[in-house]
Write a protein that binds this DNA or RNA. Structure first.
Length: 170
DNA sequence: AAAGCGGTCAACCGCCAATCA
DNA sequence: TTGATTGGCGGTTGACCGCTT
């Protein structure tokens, strides 16, 4: 016998949450706290899996969640933390108040990862892809990055890229 | 005007570690 | 000690939207 499913699949709603469901979940948690996620849907009158409720609450409905675009400082923090922690999104989120692991993961995969690739930085190892970095490590254009160790070079490239962004050259 | 395409992001899935009985 | 249960995590999916052709 395998592990029992987290919820009875019959009669359990899936897909996007409705405003009514959001309201029910929010009101229930504000009154009782989450308690046991498995029993919460029944108690709150929701036809949802407990897992789905927990995800909806922690990723979207929690009152301390900061919505909207990531600032450049946040983006820089994510890059630096990712270079140390790797794909430990929850650990990264714990260091960015108001941001969820899901949000950071999405932002990484859709924005930062591609940006690093464009910069010639491997998004997994954070090491410069030297085969692609002829322009970036050119001593004339970026003398610090050209001379430094790998770690310092990454930081230098981030600073270099920041200046380019500020100058609207990218 | 509409079909195709790529980007975005909310939500789901499956796995694992911690906890409980 | 062990098997069941629960919560949490990272990876992936798919619906939606805007842009291009």
């Amino acid at each position: 016998m395998g592990r029992s499913p987290c919820c009875d699949k019959n009669g359990v709603m899936k897909g996007p949450w409705t405003p009514e469901e959001d309201l029910k979940l929010t009101q229930y948690i504000q009154m009782h706290g989450p308690g046991n996620w498995r029993t919460l849907p029944k108690n709150a009158g929701l036809q949802r899996c407990g897992k789905s409720c927990r995800l909806r609450w922690s990723n979207y409905l929690r009152p301390d969640i900061k919505r909207g675009r990531f600032s450049f400082e946040e983006e820089e923090s994510i890059i630096q933390l990712h270079s140390v922690l790797g794909n430990k999104w929850s650990a990264i989120a714990a260091r960015l108040p108001g941001r969820t692991d899901n949000e950071i993961k999405n932002y990484w995969n859709t924005h930062i990862r591609k940006r690093l690739l464009r910069m010639g930085i491997d998004p997994v190892t954070h090491a410069p892809r030297l085969d692609l970095l002829d322009l970036q490590i050119c001593p004339v254009i970026c003398p610090i990055a050209a001379a430094a160790t790998v770690a310092v070079r990454i930081l230098a490239l981030i600073q270099f890229y920041r200046r380019l962004c500020l100058a609207r050259l990218i």
